Computed example of a mutant assay.
Amino acid sequence: MLKTLKRALLLPLRLLLALLILFEEWGYQPLARLMARLGRLPVLRQLEHLITRLPPAAALAVLLLPALLLLPVKLLALLLIGSGRFGLGLSLVILAKLAGTAIVARLFQLTRPALLRMAWFARCYASWTIWKSGLLDWLRASEIWRRARLFKRRLRRFMRA
């Protein structure tokens, strides 16, 4: 009975995590492609070339830099929301999230080979990938997912008609 209760309590958390990861991946690929197109510009192409040649520790620092640089922007957004400018604050959070995801997606593509040379990072990345894959497999096999896909197909048919 305790196991059933634990599973029932963890179900909403697991579902929320799976949906957050899915949403993150949904934006990750298109934003990474957009940044790769921007990376064709001469100045950015040179910068990307330098990033791909970084040693592992420097690659990790470069990957973490956007998160640190966006922190003050996110704090400003919270300040705006707290001072009654909800729309402006929310817009700033969304823009920061999109920009941060786009930049980190591209930087990860560029730095992944160097990062994977660090044993601890390679282990964490492998564990994360396995865990994430299992969670997304669970979500895609769930009744909620099947019903959402059915609803999406019906909605598309309705919109075409």
Rank of each mutant, 00 (worst) to 15 (best):
A148Q: 09
G89E: 03
A8I: 03
M35T: 09
G87F: 10
R117A: 15
Q109Y: 02
L78E: 08
R112A: 12
L110V: 07
A148I: 10
A141G: 14
L54S: 12
L95E: 04
V104N: 08
E143C: 08
L20N: 08
P12V: 05
L139A: 12
P113C: 05
R153Y: 06
L90V: 14
R123S: 03
A8W: 09
G87N: 06
R146L: 06
L15R: 11
T4P: 00
R149D: 00
A58C: 12
L22H: 08
A36D: 10
S127N: 10
L13Q: 02
I144M: 00
I51N: 11
V104D: 01
L79I: 14
P72W: 04
S83P: 00
Y28M: 02
R149Y: 00
L60F: 15
A32E: 09
K132A: 13
L115D: 00
L64W: 09
K97D: 12
R146V: 01
S142M: 06
I103K: 07
L63K: 14
A148M: 11
M1V: 05
L19P: 01
W145T: 04
L110S: 07
T52L: 06
G39S: 10
P56W: 12
V62T: 12
P30G: 06
L110W: 11
T101K: 11
L71D: 10
R14Y: 01
A126P: 01
L10Y: 06
I51Q: 13
W120T: 10
L19Y: 00
L95W: 08
L13H: 02
A122F: 03
F23G: 15
A61C: 10
L15G: 07
